[in-house]
Design a protein around this nucleic acid. Sequence first.
DNA 1: CAAACTCTGTAATGATATAACATCGGAGTT
DNA 2: AACTCCGATGTTATATCATTACAGAGTTTG
Lengths: 144, 144
Amino acid sequence: MSTRRALTRNQALVLDTLTACDEPLSAYAILDRLRGEGVRAPLQVYRALDKLVETGLVHRLDSLKAFVACSHPHEHDGAAVVAFAICENCARVWEFSDSKIEDRFAAWAEAESFLTKATTIEISGLCVSCRKAAEATEGAKTAV
Amino acid sequence: MSTRRALTRNQALVLDTLTACDEPLSAYAILDRLRGEGVRAPLQVYRALDKLVETGLVHRLDSLKAFVACSHPHEHDGAAVVAFAICENCARVWEFSDSKIEDRFAAWAEAESFLTKATTIEISGLCVSCRKAAEATEGAKTAV
DNA sequence: CAAACTCTGTAATGATATAACATCGGAGTT
DNA sequence: AACTCCGATGTTATATCATTACAGAGTTTG
């Protein structure tokens, strides 16, 4: 039943690189980290990424032109809509989904007879820690 | 009270180009259409786009790396979250917003203490007409 | 007037992504 | 084994998207 195929060498290298990193990487950043492993051309990385994205093990963040390993690869049963919150300071990513949101999009699509194939949701802002850090320095500044 | 400023020549040219077009255009596509008006360098277009996006008159569709004129420029009172549905066949774009969806995102952000600065929502699929056209040819094919 | 500011134009470059082509190697035959 | 099919690979070149750096022109504002 599982459509999960063994990964090829390049795919495994790319996935490992992304998994080991706690922030999104551009294709070229991945390439740089894999030169030691014999990966030399962008296309090798892009091809691996294409497959990984296709199977849901990796997500592309359009707003960053970068890629992250999926944090819930096991939950990819249905066509769940996933949202990403990206901290613009530390670049870390939170992946979540919400069935109510999904329902509203489905309702809109239904009303318009739009056939949905993919949904991209990306929220950028500041995560708790970076927010607090920013508020602290703000406070110090204005407190002078 | 209005922060609306008169547009500069380049900004007006770019906005007019986008408004006249019923599908998203890349910056370079805009440039090509404006060569006759004396626009020669990508930067002239990108600078105009930056301002237009900043004031909300134009949106950038990350998933397409392209730009569209906003369909509801007058409604840009608050920080409304806008979603885009993009037909992958005819490239037309539907812009809509839903306060319930907005509420859910706000709730997530609240729970995580995430400070939201921008939200990008892009849905790709097939619009009514393209969907029907596709189904028609599908039907013809399987009906042989 | 001069300082500060914004918009402008141009050239060069950086960053992201794909096309085209030849080759390799495994899976399933025959 | 020889054959074919098919997907992955490696390499070069090129397309597409976006920004840096620098200099000049025009306006506001003190």
